[in-house]
């Protein structure tokens, strides 16, 4: 055995490092300081969320949970110097346009994701489509509105359909990418077993991949719906705004996000209160869909 004894006391000949943690050493101080800063940063980042929720509950809640909740939820938006009124048409408009957008983007997105994730994930079309879908996630929402304006509104006028299409353009990438992710996670064994039993690729998809990947697909769908409900830029000049309940799809339609935008620029206390109320309702809708995405998305494989 060696004659070195590393645990003995330090000699003057050969200095040995002190291996215990020393809090006041400059490097440790620096590390502790940065840790403190990071904690501060983390707490600061959480502050806006809680501030927003607080304002929503206080400002929006007083009107929403006050005496006249029915009036607020079903009444027509008030004009200028009017009192009272509600956000009914806006809620209905948002639901209808998000519904149209979902009807367009969900089937299309899932079909595309089937191709990208299962059928042929390495072909040129798949690679290009995947890349472009990712590019589309960062697409400014107002340009979706400009695009739909040029294609639909110029020919057919302002309508809820145009608004729905603009929202669909924004929902599509989220649905495609989440669904593709979910479906490519399905274990190869399960698919092989199905092939072994003589299934065609379509049957494998419908009977094995889709059911197994459903949680992930639903997560993507819920997140896309949540995002689309909150959008306002694409609706500004496709669906415009209306002060009445929608009676047909081909006319300007109210929406919660546009109502908030319009009313927040008004000097009247009544309108501002309703803007907060609408914000509370909108955030509740968005949060519900986000939570649903989380619950439904728990993987089972």
């Amino acid at each position: 055995m060696s004659q070195l004894d590393l645990t003995s006391q330090a000699l003057d000949i050969r200095p040995r490092p002190r291996l215990q943690y020393q809090a006041l050493e400059p490097r440790a101080l620096k590390s502790g300081f940065l840790t403190g800063l990071t904690w501060l940063a983390a707490l600061l980042a959480a502050v806006p969320l809680f501030s927003v929720i607080y304002m929503l509950l206080i400002q929006g809640g007083t009107r929403l949970f006050g005496a006249d909740i029915a009036e607020v939820l079903t009444g027509l938006p008030p004009a200028g110097f009017e009192m009272g009124g509600g956000i009914g048409p806006a809620i209905v408009g948002t639901l209808i346009m998000v519904g149209i957008a979902s009807a367009i983007s969900i089937p299309l997105g899932i079909l595309a994701a089937i191709y990208l994730g299962v059928l042929d994930s390495t072909s040129k079309i798949a690679k290009t489509a995947r890349f472009l879908a990712k590019v589309l996630t960062g697409f400014p929402s107002i340009l979706a509105g400009v695009f739909v304006y040029a294609v639909i509104v110029i020919r057919f006028g302002y309508s809820a359909t145009a608004g729905g299409v603009a929202l669909a353009v924004l929902m599509l990438p989220t649905v495609v990418l989440a669904a593709e992710e979910a479906m490519s996670q399905v274990p190869q064994r399960m698919k092989d077993a199905a092939y072994g039993m003589g299934c065609t690729r379509t049957q494998v998809i419908w009977k094995v991949v889709l059911p197994t990947g459903l949680p992930g697909i639903l997560t993507g769908v819920m997140l896309a719906i949540a995002g689309a409900s909150g959008e306002s830029a694409p609706l500004l000049f496709t669906a415009l705004f209306s002060n009445y309940y929608i009676s047909e799809l081909a006319e300007p339609t109210a929406s919660l996000s546009i109502l908030i935008y319009n009313f927040s620029g008004m000097p009247f206390q009544n309108q501002i209160e309703l803007a907060w109320t609408a914000s509370l309702v909108l955030v509740l809708i968005v949060l519900v869909f986000n939570i649903l995405a989380r619950i439904l998305g728990r993987p089972k494989v």
Binding site: T74, V92, I96, G99, Y244, Y245, I246, S247
Partner: peptide, 17 residues
Amino acid sequence: AVAALGLLAGGQPAISA
């Protein structure tokens, strides 16, 4: 539920119409 809400909303304009 969403469909029901949509129908309910659809009923509204019928009344005002």
